[in-house]
Design a protein around this nucleic acid. Sequence first.
DNA 1: GCGTCGGCGTTAGTGCCACTAACGAAATGG
DNA 2: CCATTTCGTTAGTGGCACTAACGCCGACGC
Lengths: 164, 164
Amino acid sequence: MSEGAERLRTLRTRLLSLAAMHSDRLVNDELARVDARKWHYAVLATLDEFGAASQAQLSDRTRIYRSDLVAVLNELAEREQVERAPDPADKRRNLVRITTAGRRTLRKLDKLLAAVEDEVLAPLDPTQRADLTSLLTTLVDHHSNPKSHDSGQQEPQRQRPGST
Amino acid sequence: MSEGAERLRTLRTRLLSLAAMHSDRLVNDELARVDARKWHYAVLATLDEFGAASQAQLSDRTRIYRSDLVAVLNELAEREQVERAPDPADKRRNLVRITTAGRRTLRKLDKLLAAVEDEVLAPLDPTQRADLTSLLTTLVDHHSNPKSHDSGQQEPQRQRPGST
DNA sequence: GCGTCGGCGTTAGTGCCACTAACGAAATGG
DNA sequence: CCATTTCGTTAGTGGCACTAACGCCGACGC
């Protein structure tokens, strides 16, 4: 209805783009309110879970390009959410560590993003959310390591709708 | 595994982004091979289904910003896939019409995009593809006309899974 | 010791896209 | 008429994916 052409409405690559665009916009808007960006969260979460790391490691784990990571870390360092110190063991490297303030921010962003996620998924019931998660995971996994077609499905686990 | 942090892997807004990014890349790469862009397809398909239209109408129907549409139409006009002529009834407007060459290109792009779609959805079986389509449609619909929250779920209308 | 090679962080720059601002020309409507 | 709005257009912003090149250091070979 009042929507575009049939071919566009049913093209899955376009549906994916549109859905992602909308989701991204909400995410970015909310993050902007607290002076953060997606990548800040990615870096903080990765540091929190994996511990201190070099920028190269961070780049691998977050999928942020090394060149872009520089700016992200500058911003995070300004906000004193990470510390960047030369690695004594290898002077080429920087050792990046999350600070207490960083962990605090991380927790805040966790909540914020859970809320956004919930808003994005608003029209879906818990079963549909689980389905979507499983389908998207399959797609992402397939494309990031195309070999993994055999292991079949990792359980589409029953998820918890309560976001707060 | 070897993947990033748990929080990142399971964040649905990120999954959506990653899946869309990959899909978009494939789409753009393939379109680039035949000297086209997503927007070319959107415009051609819309013109084909709705007939000649002003740029404002096209903008509404394709969701391309008016300012960006100008460049797209320039490119399509260069390729002689559309014709842009002043509307006699309203001299502010341009009437944009698809040409025979445009229809030919459109058919080519239809095939090309169907193939890309199939590649993107490769890891999913027909049932999963149908589910994904339905879920994404629900999300997109919800966000493009947010009023539809009352009617509960609007029929995730059946679509045709068999893409191959 | 010296040269090469490669990884590391960094800078600069490209291209695409979503989005905004402003403007001239033409329609519309009091 | 004059004010407002619409239409096409230009210019510009900012984020992100991605590339190229550079200086620095470490590793390895000789």
